[in-house]
Amino acid sequence: MERITDLTFLNTFAGGNKDKMKKYISMFLQLCPNSLTNMKTSLESENYDGLRAAAHALKPQISYMGIKAAEPLIKALEHHASTKTELDKLPGMLTEFDGLCRKAMEELAAEIA
């Protein structure tokens, strides 16, 4: 199965230090589920500012964990929530984004196991 996370940046950033990488990955695994829940509850309650804020906060972490396929999605989610445009597309985008994050979290959890 093809990997969806690319840890090249994180590895370079940590200077190959496995403990440091483990620390960053553990933090992501701790923060990401909360962010996804915030995004979902915000969308359900049509709180688009909340959705934009949660997406905005999670965006750099997605980049650091090398989840390339999720980057355009989170940018689009932030943009559409901010401009309140194409709102009908948001649930589908969020479902796809959530799926990618769950898969990435599985990979990352295996990485530090």
């Binding site: 950033f13 620390k23 960053y24 933090m27 923060l31 906060a57 750099p60 972490q61 650091y64």
Partner: peptide, 9 residues
């Protein structure tokens, strides 16, 4: 920063 990961990195 309110993002603990960004701040820590």
């Amino acid at each position: 920063d309110d993002d603990p990961m960004q701040a820590m990195m």
